[in-house]
Design a protein around this nucleic acid. Sequence first.
DNA 1: GATGAATGAGCTTTCATTCAT
DNA 2: CATGAATGAAAGCTCATTCAT
Lengths: 222, 222, 222, 222
Amino acid sequence: MSPTRLQRRREPSQARGRQRVRALLEATAELLEEVGYDALTTKGIAERANTSIGSFYQFFPNRDAAVAHLVDSYRAQIRKYLHTAVRQQFKDTRKGITADWVGSVVDGLSALYASFPGFAGLWSGGVQDGPLRSHAEQLRAELLASLEVLLGEAFPGVDPERRHRCLLMVVETAKAVLFRCGTASPDQAEMMREELKHMLALYMAAYFESDADDRSAVFTGT
Amino acid sequence: MSPTRLQRRREPSQARGRQRVRALLEATAELLEEVGYDALTTKGIAERANTSIGSFYQFFPNRDAAVAHLVDSYRAQIRKYLHTAVRQQFKDTRKGITADWVGSVVDGLSALYASFPGFAGLWSGGVQDGPLRSHAEQLRAELLASLEVLLGEAFPGVDPERRHRCLLMVVETAKAVLFRCGTASPDQAEMMREELKHMLALYMAAYFESDADDRSAVFTGT
Amino acid sequence: MSPTRLQRRREPSQARGRQRVRALLEATAELLEEVGYDALTTKGIAERANTSIGSFYQFFPNRDAAVAHLVDSYRAQIRKYLHTAVRQQFKDTRKGITADWVGSVVDGLSALYASFPGFAGLWSGGVQDGPLRSHAEQLRAELLASLEVLLGEAFPGVDPERRHRCLLMVVETAKAVLFRCGTASPDQAEMMREELKHMLALYMAAYFESDADDRSAVFTGT
Amino acid sequence: MSPTRLQRRREPSQARGRQRVRALLEATAELLEEVGYDALTTKGIAERANTSIGSFYQFFPNRDAAVAHLVDSYRAQIRKYLHTAVRQQFKDTRKGITADWVGSVVDGLSALYASFPGFAGLWSGGVQDGPLRSHAEQLRAELLASLEVLLGEAFPGVDPERRHRCLLMVVETAKAVLFRCGTASPDQAEMMREELKHMLALYMAAYFESDADDRSAVFTGT
DNA sequence: GATGAATGAGCTTTCATTCAT
DNA sequence: CATGAATGAAAGCTCATTCAT
């Protein structure tokens, strides 16, 4: 497999082409959400985008290239989100890792994930193993790195290594639970999101709060 | 799809037949681990089991039936494990949700998962959506129910509803992190398992410990 | 491309299977003759053999494997022919390279080639370049080696190196002209075959006849 | 297929257009040499010529038209070559069919073929069968006719019918062997070219030399 | 004219499943 | 029961050709 197998085949030079590419990527994202990565087919993508299979291959060399493009675009959006929205929110509440703060971060991530159709589908087996593996890893790494920077600014006293460990867990756990919410009933989903906030607040507090007295404020029960 | 599509086709009546079925299920489990659910093929299963494709269909009506059978067998084994090993271990340490106790439960689950080849492969997209969905749900439910009973016995004072919520999160989180460990480097995996123990201990303590003083014992930092 | 890409996929174990394989190879040979190597399609082969495309792939991993098999079978047949028919004929006329002798060899080769449907199609560009290259080379080498042995026995006095050079030319020229005959009118074909005999007789005589006087016997004009 | 399917689509009226056509034909020739007729693609031609696929179809109605044009241009060049270079050379050595003379003709043809990129690719199956068949035949006929005229002038005494037969063989044999040289090692190629000269010299001498005594001069062995 | 987007028939190959032996 | 041959829908991908801009 040549190293360019996941590159786009060509940058569309006409407006019509750019429009097509957008439609194809949208279709890819939707189908990724609806049927998952392994059931994703190029024919399906083309049909959903109201186009012919030939047009798909005009712009993408294969199925994975479209998915890779999607992953990269999500990565870029996540970075931007974390560099703006979260940082802003963060400045307002530099008082510590309160339940509120964790809650708003989780809500933010939740909304972010929800706004990416197909995001959940990117964590299935096929993506983690095959040629997309590195793309998925980069997405993970990007998210983690951004959070590390943010919390590093807020809590300069915490050992970077410990910070890394903590946030690695936070990211992984949040992802797992939030995606599980996607397949549960709305009630259950709401409940799980709340529990996730509690859990992460407790866990992060242990790392980022020096003052044990605050901990009672962190967890209030329900 | 008839309701019996995942049933076994026929109960083998001869010893040779039972042996065949066992070999087929083993092969299914191994391949599930090696290549994942979506790359699982009936021909592959038959070959790995040193049989013909015809024999596979003698005992299973289709590919998913074999997987469903595997899920069910895992379910039975997990139930047994929780009703014996964990309960025993539990009685020894009825002193509370200590870090040690949580640690040994996580280690137990980790070993349990590891002892089921293909277990991780069961949580991919294809299994969660298709005809196997209910089987996967039952597996989850079984695990959850067993834990609820156990902790219900140990902490009768905790509201069943709250207990349920807590353990739901515990199960989901443990699964996500432990499976992620499977694709990480041994060092990282070890680290993540330790962090998982801390996180769950903190979280569970908030539910099952009335006495805040104990909490310091729960989390020891690193 | 793995080294076994041109191997047969499996040896058919049932009579029905062997029959199918034979039909598939026959169809391959016929189509090779009718449309040539590059226009050969697996679908076409299956249809011509009155089977489904699936059956083709049950026995051959890909299109080239069928062709390779054909080449090898032709090779075996040519070897046998040269080791029996030609040798016999040769013994009868050990008097030298007469026009008659060359004529009968050319006629023999001509008949041999004609009895292999698709043989001509094996010398097209696609076969000479791709994965079949070595098979085609072996076929050539086999033919050449057999002739070298035969003429070595008959004319032990000729330098092996010169013998090799001469026969290389003979084989190549005979092949080219005989195959060209295949696309010409019957009259022209007949004429070309006769000319070929003259040309080769003259050429071989220069190598294998020490006695220049015989040469007049070799070429009689027309 | 309309009779004009291989005609040029339109005569370019501007200098830019003529330049385009030349580039497209050059690209066609190069690719014909590199990948062969069957692997020739219109997209490939356009890219090699630094143009768009649309431009290709501006000047040629289809893929074969470009190849046909190439064949015709080769035909014209061959005619010119034979009417000048060979004729000149011929006059110098009107002494008879010596080995030297045949040698220089073979070398000339060899150089000629080599100077036409893609020439060899024109003799593959696809070209001989399809719509290009007549173009290929004309190329052959042209070459043959030119040689017939030349040798007719030099040896007026030889029966035209016999002359035709002889030269037909010469052309076919020379083509086959020279093209085979293209895929052999340089050493082997050189050797085969030498052998070809011997063989043709012997053969032609039998037709064009009345005097048997000269024949010994024709073949000198090696 | 030049460009490249659009199209879809057609090819190779895989795989679940059925069925004859 | 065991075997493996038979089947064909469906997937990925290519390419000649047309056409809008």
